[in-house]
Design a protein around this nucleic acid. Structure first.
Length: 890
RNA sequence: GGGAGCAUAGCUCAGCUGGUUCAGAGCAUCUGCCUUACAAGCAGAGGGUCCGCGGUUCGAAUCCGUGUGCUCCCA
């Protein structure tokens, strides 16, 4: 079959995807082989894959495909999470925009119906992208965090942890998102530096003409003030013991209290205390028994309790309060102030500290085993040095986790309330009722099961995703089942460093708690994908390219190549489309090598070489065999260290440079001559191994080439072809050490390059043939590689014992070369170059001699290092001699 | 404020346990090639005070200290 000019991804990709799917290659069931399990970090259903995901999924696919080809039963479970806040926000928005329906008009059940519809419609986008990228996931296992069994698992865990006393309900100061109208965990708040203002406000002291000035960033909260606090050691305020002041605008009488918490140097040294709206004030309030006046509603508007500006939004209220304070003369000063504000990670709204009754999970007990697992090395973090400290710090200082959210989209908290407010945690209404009637404390005479009401709130999405590695195998709902025993713990988790606390640490906690085992052996953190200017890729900036467009333009293999080649382990990468171009060019290179072999195949000679008699002819095959073995070992090692980018670079260079640029050229037959049959066989065999090595990185083109190289039997596909054991590097070939072949290869390349360089510099036309005279003590090696050398430099090789006059002299490795041309030599230019070279060598010689002259060096350095220096000295001296010799002859 | 990381060619980065002619790779640049696999290519080349300063050592891009500049995490 005639091959197209270039590789056409649009044809190969759907074809192989279909083929792999048809044959169920990526579906896994437990068997006798060791398992290699990866669970996809669930992207949320609202989204599309951005470049960060692309990197992530590619890394996972590389590891999974490699394992599948290395004797493992590879199982990669896809899925997505329900992303409570983000999805609910999108659904609410859609309902308002498209249908004119407000959430408040709907019942919970009606709303959930719309949400599931929405999920059906958009949730598939992400799966399509995973598919197009060539990810070898087991689609029969796709899991969603709101699936029935998953829902049950989350509820089961909640009930269980409650029974164990690890979950409690209480009023605490929490982070409130006034836009989504829900609580957030500490981890969901992002802090940003902003320019703010500090307002100095006058509070009148009771029964005196005096007043006290406080400094605040949030004048709109003064209506919630219930004290003023000063430092007891501050002489300015010592006389105010037992005094009271009046809050401006509302005239509340509040005490002046004394606490060392206040920094006398900050602002005026006097602090207004608003326990309802600031975490530190809240703690002060607890300590001094202060009244709590909550002046804000759940949507961020001022409440009745504020007394003024009721119903105004907090930001507008601030302006109104400032104006009012100005008017009555209470505002004495405004100053610029640098501060930090918390923003909701999901909605971007400014987070409001708010006292609210929420559910919490105690973290201390769960954190200890999770920390130990990593410190003991049961879980290995890559790159370790960078993230171990972060992980450790967070777990050692962990705070209780606020797990309730005031939303509908998610697992509804299984807590049931009697009309008089008593609360029971149970998986179902019936179970809750059972529990109530079993407790004599309840007055059952007027209570029926229907009067129980369920908690309105849902659980944090992370409270479901932390069970992911277990429940994708039904490990929570059906503990100890065959699958979870086989697949758990999973092998490696690949994810972004940004969710180390949200997700990674909590999965370890859940795994240690329920399976008594770590959830994964290795954690690999990928870096963040940034644009060329180093900016984080984000939807709002619009600087993230569309994945499917990239795949359409360059092909999935090229996209995978481009993103991997740029991505050193754990480091951020600056995304640049040109690296994807490089991937496409690489495709083209391999495609052309395939075409070359195809042409050879069409016209191969019947002749073969008899190995014993003709080492020379077979030399390129031996050499490449050794080169390939060495590279395979290197790649294997890099991959176990998760240095995937370097592994890919190694393969890239092995294919492009060693195979295409050197090996194929070395065995290429003379113009119009048929190729030697043994060479052809070797070339095909090597190419097979090369595409196998590359397959995990670029699955489509490699599968295509694999099938183009030979006719394959049904079921002989590259994606499941097992790697042979890498042959050891030292293995002899025909009694010769592999290292020798490699050394000869290096010499041959050096000589070819060196002579071509001379040709270039001397402007010898490519078509002009030259005579190369070499003075060497290794004639046998040159005899071996002679024909290749002559072909590659377009010249003929002759051995000499002395300098040849009227030639261009050069030294390559340890041998002296004299290049004879038909054209006259530009002696001036040549002399100049030789002089420059000579100067460098003389300087180098001085430094080597100095080193060797240093007694302490000779004494202290390792013997082979000293030996090396001596050799350098000798080589340099002989080179100098050759150059001086040539100079004298010009 | 506390902690972590980074600084090497124009750009993006390798450089592991200090020692090969160690200062590297890819991309970009320059020169020469339409050589029947490939111009999305081939053959070559140039390019760096390894951020500054100090120390340890026979020897430092590499180890230690310090300064500067950037990035991230936490409060």
């Amino acid at each position: 079959m005639e091959l197209s000019k270039n590789f056409i991804p649009a044809e190969a990709e759907p074809k192989w995807n279909q083929h792999w799917t048809d044959r169920k290659y990526f579906n896994s069931t437990p068997d006798h082989r060791p398992s290699f399990t990866v669970v996809i970090p669930p992207p949320n259903v609202t989204g599309v894959l951005h470049m960060g995901h692309t990197l992530n999924e590619t890394v996972q696919d590389i590891l999974v495909r490699k394992a599948r080809m290395s004797g493992f039963n590879a199982c990669w479970v896809p899925g997505s999470d329900h992303a409570s806040i983000a999805t609910e926000a999108k659904v609410v928005q859609m309902l308002e925009k498209e249908k004119g329906i407000h959430k408040s008009d709907l019942t919970r059940a009606e709303f959930l119906r719309y949400a599931f519809e929405w999920k059906e419609k958009y949730g598939g986008i992400i799966y399509n992208q995973i598919d197009r990228l060539g990810c070898s996931v087991d689609w029969s296992r796709v899991t969603f965090t709101m699936d029935d069994h998953y829902y049950k698992a989350v509820i089961k865990v909640f009930v269980d942890l409650s029974k164990k006393g690890l979950i409690y309900r209480g009023a605490r100061m929490i982070n409130w998102d006034p836009e989504a109208k829900t609580a957030l965990s500490d981890e969901e708040v992002e802090y940003k530096d902003i320019h703010g203002k500090l307002y100095h406000v006058n509070y009148k002291i009771e029964g005196s003409e005096e007043s006290i000035v406080i400094a605040t960033q949030r004048p709109e909260t003064i209506m919630g003030d219930t004290a003023i606090c000063v430092n007891p050691n501050d002489p300015r305020y010592a006389h105010l013991k037992n005094a009271h002041a009046f809050v401006p605008l509302v005239n509340r009488r509040i005490p002046i209290i004394f606490d060392e918490y206040v920094d006398p140097a900050f602002g005026t040294g006097a602090l207004k205390v608003t326990p309802a709206h600031d975490i530190n004030d809240y703690n002060l309030g607890l300590k001094h028994n202060l009244e709590v006046v909550d002046t804000l509603n759940e949507d961020g508007t001022l409440s009745e309790a504020a007394g003024v500006f009721i119903g105004e939004d907090r930001f507008k209220a601030r302006k109104l309060v400032i104006a009012a304070l100005k008017e009555n003369g209470s505002l004495v000063k405004e100053e610029e102030y640098q501060t930090r504000l918390g923003y909701s990670q999901r909605t971007g709204a400014v987070v409001e500290p708010r006292i609210s009754t929420q559910w919490f999970l105690k973290m201390k007990e769960m954190a200890t085993p999770a920390l130990e697992a990593v410190l003991k090395g049961d879980i290995r973090i890559h790159p370790g040095d960078k993230f171990l400290a972060t992980y450790r710090y967070w777990l050692e200082n962990v705070k209780d986790w606020c797990i309730s959210r005031q939303l509908w989209w998610g697992q509804q908290i299984p807590a049931w309330y009697t009309p008089d407010g008593a609360c029971v945690v149970a998986a179902t209404r019936e179970e809750a009722w059972e529990e109530i009637i079993s407790q004599p404390a309840f007055d059952l005479t007027r209570l029926t099961i229907d009067q129980l009401t369920q908690d309105n709130d849902v659980l944090d999405t992370w409270f479901s995703s932390w069970l992911w590695p277990m429940e994708v195998f039904n490990g929570i709902t059906d503990p100890g089942n065959k699958e979870v025993r086989y697949y758990y713990p999973t092998s490696v988790l690949v994810t972004g460093q940004d969710i180390i606390f949200f997700w990674v640490a909590r999965m370890v906690m859940a795994g240690m708690h329920y399976e008594k085992m770590i959830p994964f052996r290795d954690v690999y953190f990928t870096g963040m994908v940034r644009d060329k200017q180093g900016r984080k890729m984000s939807k709002s900036l619009g600087n993230s390219p569309d994945l499917l467009e990239l795949i359409d333009k360059y092909g999935a293999d090229a996209v995978r190549f481009g993103i991997m080649i740029l991505s050193p382990a754990g480091n951020d990468l600056l995304f640049d489309e040109s690296s994807i171009e490089q991937g496409r060019n690489f495709n083209n290179k391999m495609w052309n090598a395939l075409k070359l072999i195809g042409m050879w195949k069409a016209r191969a000679a019947e002749t073969t070489v008899n190995d014993d008699q003709d080492h020379t002819t077979n030399w390129p095959n031996y050499w490449f065999r050794c080169r390939l073995n060495a590279a395979r070992l290197e790649v294997d090692q890099l991959m176990t260290q998760f240095r995937l980018s370097e592994a890919l670079k190694t393969i890239y260079s092995l294919i492009w440079d060693d195979y295409c640029s050197w090996y194929l050229e070395w065995i290429k037959p003379a113009y119009d001559a048929p190729v030697n049959k043994d060479h052809l066989e070797s070339a095909i065999g090597f190419f097979e191994e090369l595409v196998q090595l590359l397959h995990p990185f670029m699955p489509f083109i490699t599968e295509e080439i694999y099938h183009q190289l030979r006719d394959r039997k049904e079921g002989d596909d590259l994606c499941i072809r097992q790697f042979s054991k890498p042959e050891t590097f030292e293995r002899d070939i025909n009694g010769k050490d592999a290292v020798k072949f490699l050394d000869e290869g290096v010499l041959l390349k050096d000589v070819i390059t060196g002579i071509r360089d001379v040709r270039n510099r001397s402007q010898i036309k490519p078509k002009e043939s030259i005579s190369v005279h070499v003075n060497t003590s290794n004639k046998d090696i040159y005899a071996m590689i002679r024909s290749i050398l002559e072909k590659q430099v377009n010249g003929s090789l002759h051995f000499v014992e002395a300098a040849v006059p009227n030639t261009i002299a050069t030294v390559i490795d340890r041998d002296q070369f004299y290049i004879e041309t038909e054209q006259p030599i530009d002696s001036g230019h040549h002399r100049e170059e030789l002089v420059r070279e000579l100067e460098y060598l003389k300087g180098f010689l001085v430094s080597v001699e100095k080193k060797l002259g240093n007694e302490r060096f000779v004494q202290n350095a390792k013997p082979d290092v000293v030996e090396m220096e001596k050799k350098k000295k000798e080589d340099t001296i002989s080179k100098i001699k050759v150059i001086e010799d040539s100079l004298s002859k010009i």
